[in-house]
Structures are given as C-alpha cells and as structure tokens.
C-alpha cells in the first residue's frame, strides 16, 4: 500500500467509514507493521486536534442579510410567471420520481403536450411579454445592485458586483427610475417589483410619497396589497391612515374593502 492510499485509509478509519472487517484488517496492519505506526499516529494527532477546535459563530448580520436577500428573491420569484417549458420540466421531474407508473403517465402526457406546443407556438405574444417582463425585473435588480455597490456593508457590495453587469446610475437616478416604473409601468409585475425594491430606500421622503400615490392609483388588487405591505414597512402610521381613508371612500369597491380588512387583520394594525 503506497503512502497516498494509506493516508486515505487512516482518514476513513478515523471517520468511522470502514466496515467491521476493514477495521479489523486495518488495526492488524498497524499493530504488525512498525513502519505504519508513526504515520498513523501523526495523522491521528492532527485529526484529534482538529476535533478540539470549537466552531465560531457569526454575528446576527449574516442571518439578517440572508433573510433580507431571501425575501426579495421570494417576491421576485412569485411575481415571475413560469414559462410553459419550465412547467413541463417540473412536471417531468416529479413524474420521474415515481417510476415505473410515472413512465406510463408520461407517455400519455407527451401526446397531450405535443398538441399544446403547437398552440403555444402560435401565440408567441405572451412569450414576448414575458421576456420583456424578465428583462424589466433584471434591470430593476441591476439598479438596486448599483446602489448596493456604495453600501457600507461589504456583503452588499459583493452581492451587487455579482448582480451588476453594467450600471453606473446614482442613487437619485435609481429611485427616480423605480418610482417611474411603480407609477407608470403597464405591467403589474414590474410595478410590484419596483414597489418592493423601493422599500430599500425607505428613508427617502419621495419614496413614501410615491408609494402612497401608487396605492391610490393602483387598480390591481395584488399590487395594491403588496404596496400596502411596503407602506407598512416604511411608515406604519401613514399606512394606517391611508387604509382607513380608502376604506371610508364611497368609490372603494366591496372586494377592495375586503382586501383592506384582511390586511388590517393579518398585520394587526
């Protein structure tokens, strides 16, 4: 047994990865071969020393940073409609986990899907909208990332460098662009992403004003709910006032009132 293999054998022994027979053989080798005892003891000593080291704990900023990042991505993911091919891919993946019954089901589904593909190819307009939407969301991400580059936190900066390919926008420009998208973009998903991204700049007065205005203008219930959520994060009191103002208005539809009621209840405000 050469040195390389012997060292691996020692480590596997120390890790407890050997079978009973292998352990017996290995211990017998160590006991009977003097040339193996020293290298064995050296590795064992290093192994034991590494086990005495205690793991160090990071401060809370790591967890906080991770969960902030995750909430942004979760929102982005939920506002992104799945493409037809993504849905098919997930479907097949789930089916393949249940062989062989899944394979039979798959065969049936392939026939149905073939017909559906034809339909999809004839209506590529929605696909194009989706591409535009994805580009918009990506652009928003870049804009947010460009600000993170100037952040005091190195974590934000590293993250931003990864996300940002080409953007030299200043903070004011980013906010202006985000507000512009929030108020005037035709696509509800872009407006929703812009609203959520603006919460990163909650100390800017113009952000609160813009979100308040957007809440008043917004027609889509889902976006309205997201914006109210964002407003609660920025200024709880202002959000409360706004909710009651809209709730009292004669123009507010019954389903809108139901939505506000739900928000007030779930947020306990």
């Amino acid at each position: 047994m050469n040195n390389d293999f012997f060292e691996q054998q020692v480590l596997e022994y120390l890790k407890g990865n050997l079978s009973l027979q292998e352990v017996t053989d290995f211990e017998s080798l160590i006991a009977n071969d003097n040339s193996k005892q020293q290298p064995f003891n050296e590795i064992k000593t290093i192994w034991e020393l590494t086990k005495t080291e205690k793991l160090e704990t990071p401060d809370d900023s790591l967890r906080e940073g991770f969960y902030n990042m995750l909430s942004m991505h979760t929102l982005e993911e939920k506002s992104k409609p799945k493409t037809f091919f993504q849905s098919v891919s997930i479907f097949f993946n789930n089916i393949l986990q249940h062989k062989p019954a899944g394979q039979l089901a798959m065969l049936t589904v392939v026939v149905l899907i073939s017909g559906y593909i034809g339909f999809q190819l004839n209506s590529n307009a929605s696909g194009q909208n989706e591409i535009v939407l994805n580009q918009e969301v990506e652009k928003l991400n870049q804009e947010v990332a460009s600000l993170q580059l100037k952040s005091a936190s190195a974590s934000d900066r590293i993250q931003a460098v990864n996300n940002l390919n080409s953007s030299n926008l200043k903070e004011e420009s980013i906010i202006k662009n985000l507000i512009n998208k929030l108020l005037y973009d035709d696509n509800m998903h872009v407006r929703m992403a812009a609203g959520k991204s603006l919460t990163l700049f909650k100390n800017h007065l113009q952000v609160k004003t813009a979100i308040l205005k957007a809440v008043q203008l917004e027609k889509e219930l889902l976006v309205k709910a997201t914006l109210i959520d964002a407003l609660i994060e920025i200024d709880r009191e202002a959000a409360l006032e706004e909710i009651y103002r809209i709730y009292e208005s004669e123009n507010t539809s019954p389903e809108m009132k139901a939505l506000y009621k739900e928000i007030v209840e779930t947020k306990s405000i």
Binding site: L62, F66, M69, L70, S155, Q159
Partner: peptide
C-alpha cells in the same frame, strides 16, 4: 470575520 460572513452570504446568493 466580516469577510467570512460576507462570503457565506454570497454563497447563498
């Protein structure tokens, strides 16, 4: 420690 923390978060990113 700050760098290690940043790199850890970056892995999840």
């Amino acid at each position: 420690k700050d760098l290690s923390s940043d790199l850890t978060q970056n892995v999840f990113y």
